[in-house]
Design a protein around this nucleic acid. Structure first.
Lengths: 339, 339
DNA sequence: CCGACCGAGTGAACCGGTTCAGTGAGCCGG
DNA sequence: CCGGCTCACTGAACCGGTTCACTCGGTCGG
């Protein structure tokens, strides 16, 4: 019971392979009667095109790739990626394109993966996440002529199209909100400085702090993990005077910070306001619920996938700006009660 | 600047395509001198085999597939899958096999994906997760002759190899531990009853409760999500008399339950003990830290991937039992203080 | 009535590997 | 000195599609 090929269909229909190919792909060259007959036979035989044969023949892999280089324990619990993938899949589902997913230990492993994929023609294009400052991957992919869409930007993406949201505006919104609540000493617990979005947010944070004449507004870095978020928070809350508001770069560290505040007897939000970033389900998992910056990650993913398919098809693809991230206030922020 | 093919190498080396193929694949048929020359030229040209051509020629896709059918919002935050994937990748990394990942909305979409993958020969085998009671996918995959390894079991997997851990033993361990702490009214907040592991755990729970003569030991079902976990917990804690210990089927619902207890003024662990399942990073994210059942999910994934590669290669693959899941006591369980 | 044209369909090449039957040279033993 | 064997390598078929140049028969305009 070999899988049927177009040759089987051709034999059954009494026509040539070429005619079958035309019929199945909806191109001219066969009469409607013949096309119908061929389609019926293909259906009856349960035929589906061999992805390998098609890939070899038309030079297209029928897959796009996503590599994520973050430590496994961060990936496991960081909801961002699964939501992103969910968005990507919603665009790919049903279509002829599959998603090849790879986790890499570090940047070197990630670039090696791109090289291999390009050399093996395993994917038609890739989605680039966690854009870095002067990201070497941008030049690499450009050099490999591998179509790519960057999730992030818009700076430093070179000629690659990107889908980005205005992080700076969101940072400004959060800071204005906290200042309105009476806060004057803010600290940002940011992700690693090498990420482009970290740099963008840090710059915006410094700028708005200057504009508003804040007493203190520093940025410290952590690696997005629960452990590092807790460690940094412990240090920050031990300082005298301590900050009255903490802005985290992801929900995970913010939730860890919430736990540390509780452990150190710092009341949230009476003495300390905490803000996360991403609006994942984690925010509603904890008490008080976490105030956070909300962006539609799923839609981000869908948008990026759509753009990548267009880029693979060869069209010019303009970068797109996603709807701005917005503050979602919950119980973890409030007016300062005991300054 | 076309990518080099073996024909290019053959021309440069002054030999035939066949000789190049033998040389590159380390098979006999070429002298060591010639092999060295061909290898050097291939290296210099930056040659890598076209995955499509190889797939077409040897009938192997060079990829394995994983489909996950859970609601997107559960997937986003449920750490289990990312850890599993991380384990799978650790086995695949560097090798010639890629991972094709798909999220499906429901079981029907999932089976449709298997059919399509099989028809298109897009993957050489698949990993099956979330085994169900009388799982239709087992027969489907067997019928499609698509190699598969089940993560779960060992019951109901038919002829498919599986990697499983002894959930029943873990349930018994947890219940004995809680009883030793003085608990007599336990409730299990389980996953959907259609999952095989849910059924196995429920059966073990009922059995050990009978053996120990517990006052109460019921199982209720939820869908693994934060919301459902919270909803069910609210209902359970409102009952009179309420259970003194809750056993959840994943950490996510357990953490949600912890939040509800706090919201309802039920002290943990003084009045209520809470146990999760999986030992994800979530457990150490909350206060009190969550007692949970720990199993090495990453290793599970690696094991399954290794078995799948063996199955694809055609060898007979015996099912494997992973090290038993073990109780990891933390702050959320303790002796009953105010019964 | 003849040439141009058009639609339907054919046959073969091609994509880039793998594999198999065959070939010629060199070596060995008898 | 010759038959047979091994080794190194060649040429072609093959995997399952797509595509292109070409043929054949019918129709239409002049």
């Amino acid at each position: 019971m070999r899988r049927p090929t177009i040759a089987d269909i051709a034999r059954a229909a009494g026509v040539s392979k070429g005619a079958v190919s035309y019929a199945l792909n909806g191109r001219p060259g066969v009469s409607e009667a013949t096309r119908g007959r061929i389609l019926a036979i293909a259906e009856e035989l349960g035929w589906a095109p061999s992805s390998a044969a098609r890939a070899l023949s038309d030079g297209r892999a029928g897959a796009v790739g996503l590599v994520v280089a973050r430590p496994a324990d961060v990936l496991g619990i960081e909801p961002f990626f699964m939501r992103l993938i969910s968005g990507i899949q919603s665009e790919l589902a049903g279509g002829p394109t599959a998603l090849t997913f790879q986790m890499a230990g570090d940047l070197a492993a990630e670039t090696a993966t791109y090289r291999r994929w390009a050399a093996e023609r395993r994917v038609d294009g890739v989605l680039l996440v966690d854009l870095r400052v002067r990201d070497p991957r941008v030049d690499l992919l450009t050099g490999l002529a591998l179509p790519a869409v960057v999730i992030g930007g818009p700076d430093g993406v070179g000629a690659l199209p990107c889908v980005w949201s205005d992080d700076a505006a969101a940072v400004r919104e959060v800071v204005h909100y906290l200042v309105a609540l009476g806060h004057r000493r803010l600290t940002r617990v940011a992700g690693p400085p090498e990420f482009a979005h970290t740099a963008a947010r840090s710059a915006a944070f410094a700028e708005v702090a200057r504009e508003l004449g804040l007493e203190r507004a520093e940025t410290v870095h952590a690696d997005y993990s629960v452990e590092d978020g807790a460690r940094v928070t412990r240090r920050l809350l031990a300082a005298v005077p301590r900050p009255t508001a903490l802005l985290y770069d992801n929900d995970l560290m913010a939730v860890a910070g919430l736990g540390v505040a509780q452990e150190m007897g710092v009341a949230v939000p009476a003495e300390l306001s905490v803000v996360g970033w991403d609006d994942s389900a984690l925010c509603r998992l904890v008490r008080p619920a976490l105030t956070t910056v909300s962006r539609d990650v799923v839609r981000h993913g869908a948008e990026a996938a759509r753009m990548l398919l267009a880029a693979v098809a060869g069209g010019p693809v303009p970068s797109r700006r996603a709807p701005a991230a917005a503050l979602r206030p919950r119980g973890s922020t409030g007016p300062l009660e005991r300054p």
